[in-house]
């Protein structure tokens, strides 16, 4: 039974190679599992002291987010560069949770309700994984393979998230039972790119993995007047409906599938209205 406190990335990768290693970031997921008796770590690798995992690099070509950045840090430091990610980070849990929980932990846990996941899916983000065998970069959409399942291999440390540049409005909206301290019943991220003339949409809590409604995205990109940045009124409902059709919600103890289906359509329509001026058809 052991704890290691690496202070350099290479030390963390070495420690992660141990067969029984349990990687610990903010602890807000792992500690809950341990407290409930569902996990019993024996060799914890505490990543909080590795400065490389908290690096943030903002350039015109890319935003590179350290996996160990807390939700509080992301909300504060990415509000201008990646507003949808900052907005999602600000809706996670409470100040206590945001001060401890990290974006990398959110990804690795891969909960369907992980609030950063639909945003990162809509941004076409990819993650950098490092192990003793080397480094590989995996698109987020390939990394998350199911409910709390990822393609991360034993011994790999999630080091950073690479977010390609997008120029235009971004939104993140979620629905829960109250404003604070809530697990999403449905969420939607919208990312407009005026340069590529695309609208990307990521839906959360309405499927085992974040949903990208391809048909809705293609439809609305064709409806937008990209010179004036306007969209006809009639297209909004159609976009929301197409997006909701791509969702695969389930009924559980938090909400019914019907409610989630309805809510996600409302969120997508609202996100579009906040991003693009709606004009009479």
């Amino acid at each position: 039974m052991s704890v290691t406190w690496p202070t350099r990335l290479d030390e963390a990768v070495d420690a992660a190679a141990a067969p029984a290693a349990t990687l610990l970031a903010g602890g807000t997921d792992l500690a809950v599992e341990v407290n409930a008796g569902r996990r019993r770590p024996v060799a914890v690798v505490a990543l909080r002291r590795v400065p490389e995992l908290r690096d943030l690099e903002i350039t015109p070509a890319e935003v590179v987010v350290g996996a160990g950045m807390t939700f509080s840090a992301i909300a504060a430091e990415l509000a201008a560069a990646v507003p949808a990610l900052a907005a999602a980070a600000r809706t996670v849990g409470s100040p206590q949770i945001r001060n401890a929980g990290t974006v990398g932990g959110n990804i690795v846990t891969a909960s369907p309700a992980g609030d950063t996941l639909p945003v990162l899916a809509a941004l076409d983000a990819s993650v950098e994984l490092r192990s003793a065998a080397g480094t590989r970069t995996v698109p987020l959409r390939e990394l998350i393979t199911g409910v709390k399942r990822t393609a991360i291999r034993p011994g790999e440390v999630l080091v950073r998230i690479r977010v390609p540049p997008r120029r235009g409005a971004q939104q993140f909206l979620k629905v829960g039972t109250r404003n604070a301290m809530v697990i999403s019943l449905a969420s939607a991220a919208l990312v407009v790119d005026e340069e590529r003339r695309t609208v990307a949409c990521g839906l959360g809590s309405v499927g085992p993995v974040p949903v990208r409604p391809a048909e809705a995205e293609a439809f609305i990109a064709g409806e937008i007047d990209w010179e004036r940045l306007t969209v006809p009124e009639g297209a909004v409902a159609r976009f929301a409906d197409l997006a909701a059709r791509a969702a695969r919600p389930i009924t559980d103890h938090r909400a019914t599938a019907e409610y989630r289906h309805h809510a996600v359509a409302v969120l997508v329509g609202r996100a579009l209205r906040r991003s693009i001026d709606v004009v009479p058809a």
Partner: peptide, 27 residues
Amino acid sequence: CEQGECGSCSVLLDGSVVCSCCVLAAD
């Protein structure tokens, strides 16, 4: 609650408020 939901275990860790139930003591 032992799951970070209630805040009754709030402490400051290096000056930031966190739920002490969600911090492994050894960390």
